[in-house]
Design a protein around this nucleic acid. Structure first.
Length: 359
DNA sequence: GGAATTTGACCACA
DNA sequence: TGTGGTCAAATTCC
């Protein structure tokens, strides 16, 4: 069984290698790229399941801890094979996302336009849906009339997720989600012990990005944040805008990086890696079908400006290897870039050996 | 000096 | 009218 699983892992690595070598050709073929990524994920998933079964068979008495063991299996294997490649992080993330039982997804509340969260908390009543109030607002978001007006109503869809806060260090820091946010307000909310923080996309002014989020710490669990996203990021549609994964995927990243997320992001969170890597998905997130750049892929430059994803001030300069990888993956196809998957595989080429066999 | 955060006040909505 | 969401001046940080 172990041998078989090892073979499956090796197959995964082989696919990674193949993807790497074919990347220049696939760069402008997102569908093929997606497919390759899916294959890689499937290979590792199969390996994981093999390990899972093996452990169940070998350690039935420890069934309560099967999942963590399974999860650490990949990690352990990765370590034992000296593989420190970031893609392994991604694959592990994906595997964990896939294994999350459906019931936990119910914790993720997706309220569509005008929708309400099913949550019955006192907080949720404040989150009402609605359309953007038509106002005379200039590009910079400043009301042009002399009388100061404030936009209300809503900017469309709300997506609420709950994310665990770090239990060590500064637990006041809202979980990193791959985007950069600027806090523009904080308010005590009736019935809540903790104030609600209001954030907008750092690039709101530069790119008129309407994305906002509210971060509310749960009363009954101070280590859990309820994060409500509003509006879609349009900043990554710019050729100079920072690159970022979509919120849902980003939430997954936070999830996996902290290892303490309590809930799964919406259905989109379980989308295959290929889906959120795909141009289509990025385009969709970036403003829907109206997004001119979506589809061609050329308009989406991941990390093109060098202003890679970082945390807000509180978590400044937090590197996101996933975004970096996406950056490399999508930019490596461009003619001038010398950065390739080698960046990701950097000096660890040797470490891609599995046991005594190099892939 | 620029950007981010804080915080009190303003405004829209239920 | 109360509450949530936003604005913007003041402050802090890098």
């Amino acid at each position: 069984m172990e041998e078989m699983t090892s073979l499956l892992f090796q197959r995964g690595f082989k696919l990674v290698r193949e993807l790497e070598s074919n990347l220049p050709n696939l760069a402008d073929q997102p569908n093929m790229l997606s497919k390759s990524c899916d294959e890689i994920v499937n290979a590792f998933r199969n390996a994981k399941e093999g390990l899972h079964l093996h452990m169940m068979f070998r350690q039935p008495q420890e069934s309560q801890q099967q999942q963590p063991q399974t999860e650490t299996s990949l990690e352990g294997w990765r370590r034992s094979s000296n593989c420190t490649h970031p893609i392994m992080e991604i694959l592990q993330m994906q595997l964990q996302a896939d294994r999350t039982p459906p019931f936990s997804r119910s914790d993720v509340l997706f309220a569509g336009e005008g929708g309400r969260e099913a949550e019955g908390s006192a907080r949720s009543k404040s989150i009402g849906g609605g359309e953007l109030h038509p106002m005379d607002v200039s590009d910079s978001g400043v009301v042009s009339s002399s009388q100061r007006q404030r936009r209300r109503k809503d900017d469309g869809e709300r997506r609420t997720i709950t994310v665990a806060a770090p239990r060590i260090g500064n637990t006041d820091i809202p979980p990193e989600d791959g985007y950069t946010w600027r806090k523009y307000g904080q308010k005590e909310i009736l019935g809540s012990k903790f104030p609600r923080g209001y954030y907008r996309c750092t690039h709101q002014r530069l790119y008129h990005c309407p994305a906002k989020k509210q971060v509310q710490r749960l009363d009954d669990d101070p280590y859990t944040f309820e994060v409500t996203y509003r509006g879609e990021h349009t900043c990554h549609m710019s050729s100079t805008a920072p690159s970022i994964p979509p919120p849902a995927a980003a939430a997954d990243i936070t999830h996996e990086m902290t290892q303490i997320i309590t809930t799964q992001p919406p259905p989109s969170s379980s989308i295959p890696v290929s889906s959120w890597l795909s141009m289509e998905y990025l385009g969709m997130r970036g403003g829907g079908s109206s997004g001119g750049a979506s589809g061609s892929g050329s308009g989406i430059v991941l990390g093109g400006g060098g202003a890679g994803p970082s945390a807000t001030r509180t978590g400044k300069d937090v590197e996101l290897p996933v975004a970096d990888m996406a950056d490399v993956m999508f930019n490596s196809g461009s003619s001038s870039s010398n950065i390739s998957m080698d960046f990701l595989f950097h000096s660890n080429d040797d470490k891609w050996e599995t046991g005594d066999k190099q892939i």
